[in-house]
Amino acid sequence: MEFDANIEHLQQAYWHILLVSGPVLGVALMVGLVVGIVQAATSINEQTLSFVPKLAIAMLTMALASGFMLTVMTDYFQTIFESIRAIR
């Protein structure tokens, strides 16, 4: 296997990591930003107030996006296994 092929596999892996984790992290970031603004506006500095909504929304996002995530990961692993089979 050549160096360029290894780089291509790494690029695909990083891209798929972004595709799978991006929706959950993006939603958690937005919820954290909104909760932080609300906390700053109301002067409420409760730790659980920032953690619980992010956890709940992140889990809901994972549940809703699980089909997309599974499809992306299945396609990626199918590509990887086909490339491993082609090495022989």
Rank of each mutant, 00 (worst) to 15 (best):
41 A>S: 15
41 A>W: 08
42 T>Q: 03
42 T>E: 01
42 T>V: 06
42 T>Y: 01
43 S>N: 15
43 S>W: 03
44 I>T: 02
44 I>L: 11
44 I>E: 03
45 N>V: 00
46 E>K: 06
46 E>A: 11
47 Q>P: 11
47 Q>Y: 12
47 Q>L: 13
47 Q>F: 12
48 T>P: 01
48 T>N: 07
48 T>V: 10
49 L>Y: 05
49 L>H: 06
50 S>P: 04
50 S>V: 12
50 S>C: 06
51 F>Y: 09
51 F>P: 05
51 F>N: 05
51 F>G: 00
52 V>E: 05
52 V>M: 15
52 V>G: 00
53 P>R: 04
53 P>T: 00
53 P>V: 06
54 K>P: 00
54 K>H: 08
55 L>Y: 01
55 L>F: 05
55 L>E: 05
55 L>C: 10
56 A>E: 01
57 I>K: 05
57 I>F: 13
57 I>Q: 06
57 I>H: 05
57 I>S: 06
58 A>T: 08
59 M>N: 00
59 M>V: 14
59 M>F: 11
59 M>Y: 01
59 M>E: 01
60 L>S: 08
60 L>E: 03
61 T>K: 07
61 T>M: 09
61 T>A: 09
61 T>D: 07
62 M>Q: 04
62 M>K: 05
62 M>I: 11
63 A>D: 03
64 L>T: 08
65 A>Q: 10
65 A>N: 09
65 A>P: 02
65 A>R: 02
65 A>L: 09
66 S>F: 13
66 S>L: 11
66 S>V: 11
66 S>N: 15
67 G>M: 06
67 G>S: 13
68 F>I: 07
68 F>N: 13
68 F>W: 15
68 F>T: 12
68 F>H: 14
69 M>P: 07
69 M>I: 11
69 M>L: 04
69 M>E: 07
69 M>V: 09
70 L>M: 14
70 L>Y: 09
70 L>K: 10
70 L>N: 12
70 L>R: 09
71 T>V: 09
71 T>L: 12
72 V>W: 02
72 V>P: 01
72 V>N: 00
72 V>G: 03
72 V>R: 06
